Simulated scan of single mutants.
Amino acid sequence: MELRQLRYFLAVAEEANFTRAAERVHISQPGISAQIRQLESDLGATLLDRSGRHVGLTAVGEVALDHARSVLAAVEALRHAVDEMNGLVRGKLVVGMVTACTVTPLFDALSGFHLEHPGVEVSLVEDDSVRLVEYVREGTVDLALIGAAGRPPEDLDGWPIVSEPIVAAVPVGHPLAERDGVTLAELSAYPVICLPRGTGIRAVLDEASAAQGLTPTIALQASAPGAVLNLAERGLGVAVLSESMIPRHAGLRTVPLNDADIPAVLALISAPTKSPALRELLVHCRQTFGEPKADGPVPVGGMATG
């Protein structure tokens, strides 16, 4: 008994016709007939009723069909398991991260994964969060670290790392420096320095302002949070970043934005269909990032560019 004979038997049973079954399995009709007769000979029983216009199953054939399907399904499962392991050993992964990423646990996860699976080729792509989301949707990026407004995209698998408010940062002596908090309307009276469109932080600022009918004046924008802070420290405008992006130093004062209710979220996102290599990388990410945090400081070196 051979696996191909079981496949031929299954094809004839489902097509109820030797000609169509032969076309389905890409063999000649005499060839499929001969193989099934050999199967019947090996089993010592007639499986197919050839007396009518359509080929039917004998009582023995009915029983044999269920077993044939089970055997072929088991073989397919075996192949799938081996293919998955081969994919883990020799696969490829494309990881996306926001520009100027400083979130070191992501690097730790990549390092740990590489040590365990050196055969998997890992490449990195830097871009803003909006483009990274599209890359994941398209399947050109497997996993991405992004910033988002409120929550990760609902059509993708999202794992929020942290959720925290956006705040303003002003130099000492600025009219807002001694305030315990300001509204977005009050913020709009000053030039703002922020990250560019496509980042999570900027999306939070734009969405929260639009909800109140406000349009802040973006005087300057830079891709790196450090540049945003340096410009603000020199009096060129009010910096708007997430809370953990603003280090404590003498040059700037952090001022809460009282009515910016949409949180800035840092999240890992991936498509629902995952390769064995990606599943293993996600395990390493969970080990390095720990459980998701909410409404607190980011224990991962800040939110990068969000």
Rank of each mutant, 00 (worst) to 15 (best):
E2V: 02
L6R: 10
A11N: 13
A13C: 04
A16E: 15
R20T: 03
V25W: 01
I27D: 00
P30C: 02
S33F: 07
I36F: 03
R37Y: 08
L39N: 04
D49W: 12
H54M: 03
G56M: 10
A64Y: 05
A68E: 14
V71R: 09
A74P: 06
A74I: 07
L88W: 12
G91H: 13
V98P: 03
P105T: 09
L106Y: 03
L106T: 08
A109K: 12
L115Y: 12
S129M: 02
V133L: 02
V133C: 03
R137T: 02
G139E: 07
L143Q: 06
A148P: 11
D155N: 11
L156A: 03
P160F: 08
P165Q: 04
V170E: 13
V172Y: 09
E178G: 09
A185C: 08
E186G: 06
I193M: 04
L195E: 13
Q212H: 14
P216S: 12
Q221N: 15
A222N: 04
S223V: 12
N230A: 15
A232E: 10
G235N: 04
H249N: 13
G251T: 02
L252H: 14
L252G: 11
R253Q: 15
P256K: 14
N258W: 07
P263Y: 00
S270Q: 15
T273M: 02
K274H: 11
S275T: 15
R279A: 12
L281G: 01
V283E: 11
Q287E: 10
E291Y: 05
P292K: 03
P292Q: 03
V300H: 15
M303D: 06
